[in-house]
Amino acid sequence: MSESVRFHFDVNGQSFTSAGQASVQVKKNLRELGIAPDVIRRVSIAMYEGEINMVIHAHGGEADVEVYEDRVVIILNDHGPGIKDVELAMKEGYSTAPDNIRSLGFGAGMGLPNMKRYTDEMKIDTELGVGTKITMTVRF
């Protein structure tokens, strides 16, 4: 079945105070759809990490969430600098976050590894100077 429920969000790259809003909203929406708590947790945490990355590393972007009968698909799209070495970026502890961001508690280099860990599939399409698209799937 290809019918799906879709949510779209613009992720503001200027503001740390609103960062995470889309993920918190998705959590709420999924709860209203009666999705299992474990799935909601995995989706919203993976999406939060991606959302924060778009704010910190890519001046914001767009998030789309598609809910199917057997899975949730999260698509994060930004027009930031791109990721030079994806394999390196995926390593736990690797971070290019500047000091002012670290003082907020980000920059552990755990975001991308968390996204991988909490989802069943994760695909990163990135091009230097063009942007990054991350597609994640969580199955029920």
Binding site: S23, G107, M110
Partner: peptide, 27 residues
């Protein structure tokens, strides 16, 4: 470290931290 907490903290636990900025609420 917020993404560390995101990866490890379990539902219903109490979370003890010295972080005081707005992002702790989302986490």
């Amino acid at each position: 470290l917020l993404s560390w907490v995101m990866g490890r903290a379990q539902a219903s636990q109490a979370w003890i931290t010295i972080m005081s900025n707005i992002n702790i609420v989302a986490v």
